[in-house]
Design a protein around this nucleic acid. Sequence first.
DNA 1: TTATCTGTTATACTGAATATATAACAAATA
DNA 2: TATTTGTTATATATTCAGTATAACAGATAA
Lengths: 127, 127
Amino acid sequence: MIVRIDFNSDEAFYIQLCNQIIFGIANAEFREGDNLPSVRELAEDIGINMHTVNKAYTILKQEGYVKLDRRKGTVIAINADKMKAIEELTDDMKVILAKAICKNISCEEIHEIVNKIFYDFLSMDSE
Amino acid sequence: MIVRIDFNSDEAFYIQLCNQIIFGIANAEFREGDNLPSVRELAEDIGINMHTVNKAYTILKQEGYVKLDRRKGTVIAINADKMKAIEELTDDMKVILAKAICKNISCEEIHEIVNKIFYDFLSMDSE
DNA sequence: TTATCTGTTATACTGAATATATAACAAATA
DNA sequence: TATTTGTTATATATTCAGTATAACAGATAA
């Protein structure tokens, strides 16, 4: 998987990194048990500091996307605490749906967008 | 409308303030033309600095939720650039849906959550 | 055993963002 | 005229983001 950092983005590098790896898991470029590059290797590849990569990995671990395997390094391991995931999803969703309502976007339009994003992620699954 | 700041949150005060005002517009506590408290008054009320409130108002203005009325101060005024709103919504939605897919939340479950949030916002409309 | 690789931790530094404080300005209002 | 509006200018303290160098323990491969 190719990870790219947008150095002009206002989003922190470690957040960009977390999100891209989460995208990679969602579209099955990364699967359970796959190992991520080492913090030093990935840092070298994308041109950022080792500690910034380490910070991203630490957050992914805390949030249940990866775990440490002493033999393989950092590997994909989903801890699907669905209750907690739904709570966080709902909180995040409230903010963006409030914005959508303000901007006169309908419930039906939201559903269409959700369907399209879901389809895009899952259709990459089989490639 | 009662605005509260969570001083223990890791979210910046000005972000909390923006989101709460957006919530207020979404559930029709604030309507087109209503005026917000002055930056000094609101700052005094919720116990934060005037410039932090001003920062929130400035962002709300840039993002098309309020405008300046020299007679009434800052008033609710939605600039519904729907194209732009949908683009931003889609970007934000991708991140949270990727997380949802990782945590085995189904497309149907997402739709249910969207419906519930929409219903909650719009049912406050008539109160 | 030795050398290397893994994540991790400690320390230190720079720059940017956040939040506060005091002060002043022009335009509008009472 | 005095007050209120948003706005702008400084200044300061704190935290966050990112980098840099270094070291550590556990696992692995020579």
